[in-house]
Write a protein that binds this DNA or RNA. Structure first.
Lengths: 140, 140, 140, 140
DNA sequence: GTGGTCTAGACCACA
DNA sequence: GTGGTCTAGACCACC
């Protein structure tokens, strides 16, 4: 798993790390049980402070996505199919999704294009998770 | 259009205003040419600082959603169907959508549920923009 | 509310702050809506770093006990009677309680003394929360 | 006495060992004079480092719960009813109990439920120490 | 080796 | 004014 950080981005660095890890989990690049780089390792890789990486892992831990052990470092704790989503999360997440989709609508993206983007992204994650289904060639 | 602001929310107030306006445009409650409340008016209505409202309008202006004339105030500049979305926007927006959808995947929402949510939200906006049953009330 | 910090304690400072706030909430010294000292204020009061206080508030926020707003600082979000305890919390808490009570048993405290301590503590919190019930004089 | 260690737990392993021993003493599974497994034995059983087990025994020794003889190994030094609890211990322990109970109060557990939990735990230890029904199985 | 805690001090975002 | 982010560097706990 190769993480890219953009120090110029408005998004805080720890948030970018968190986002990349979440995406890697969704895409199956990181599976439950997989080891994450140590905070120190990531820090030197990106040329950033350990505390910044620690904060990113802190967020992921609070979200239940990783589990940390003093000796062995951090590992992925859950992923697609591990546990059903909590209702509270879905509610809050839906609101964020609505705002994001509204932005696309307001900016002129047509409805079908928006839905197609969503489908494409979800299918991309799914395909990368389990590239076993070769029964796919037509666009549908 | 009735905007609701939650001063307790973790989201900055200017962001909440911006989000509500974007959603209103997507839902057709605000259409291109519609007048927005003045910065001062909104500030008084919500009991918040003028600078906060000004910042919200500033963001909307940078996004090209509103246009401000010193004399006549701010009006909605674009909306669904006005102009096609710019490619740069779509690219950047897709990345944000991917992150948001990844979060749902990682947290255990199944793929179809995620797509269903997206479809439902887009259709909701669409229906509110152009209600298919043309039975009109007095309020409209 | 007067918080006391012991820099010599084995417990991390941020944990001590968190514990004192929790106790103050249980005792009704801090009620939902009440303002907490700002991170900077607490930091100078205790002669510690802002980041340390911020971490304490971070923990409290993750526990849902406080809510933080950029402008107005942090306020108590929940307290006795606000919301029923979540089942997951009770399970995890019970295990910690069992370990703590086991320690007393093993060290020679007799069963009734242990229970009496628990009752006394809970009643103390209760009395400080609502010192209105004057119908109490006998030991029972 | 069967000790279960969870290497994934947030609690340090030495603490888990110490906690399980304390609970076993409270429940009468380990009685004063009983022999503990050797440091090496436990380390092999759990597949953990000897130093980790040694640290756990160290803590128990400092608490006065076990006594170690270089020749004969470690034995339980005290238990329920052996000696009355020291005042210093009770004071310090009460403070920890108050913090733990405060957490439950603040999170919405009602007072009677908290006391009931305490009683149930103490009674459970008591019952396991001296089962009131003298119907004995072959295993006992 | 791992992660956790804390400091001193800086800069930015929010209102 | 408030809190959030980040740095550089230190020390400690765990194993």
């Amino acid at each position: 798993m190769q993480i890219q950080i953009d120090p110029q981005s408005a998004a805080p660095i720890y948030q970018q790390i968190r986002d990349r890890v979440v995406e890697a989990v969704a895409a199956g690049e990181l599976r439950p049980g997989d080891q994450l780089a140590s905070v120190r390792q990531l820090a030197v890789d990106f040329g950033i402070n350990v505390a910044t990486v620690a904060k990113a892992y802190d967020v992921l831990r609070n979200e239940g996505l990783i589990r940390t052990n003093h000796k062995s470092g951090s590992v992925i704790a859950r992923g697609p199919g591990t546990e059903p989503a909590e209702e509270a999360f879905v509610t809050e997440w839906s609101a964020r999704l609505a705002t994001l989709l509204a932005e696309a609508v307001a900016r002129g993206l047509i409805d079908t294009a928006i839905v197609d983007h969503s489908i494409a992204i979800v299918e991309d994650f799914s395909a990368r998770r389990s590239p076993s289904d070769p029964a796919k060639d037509s666009t549908s």
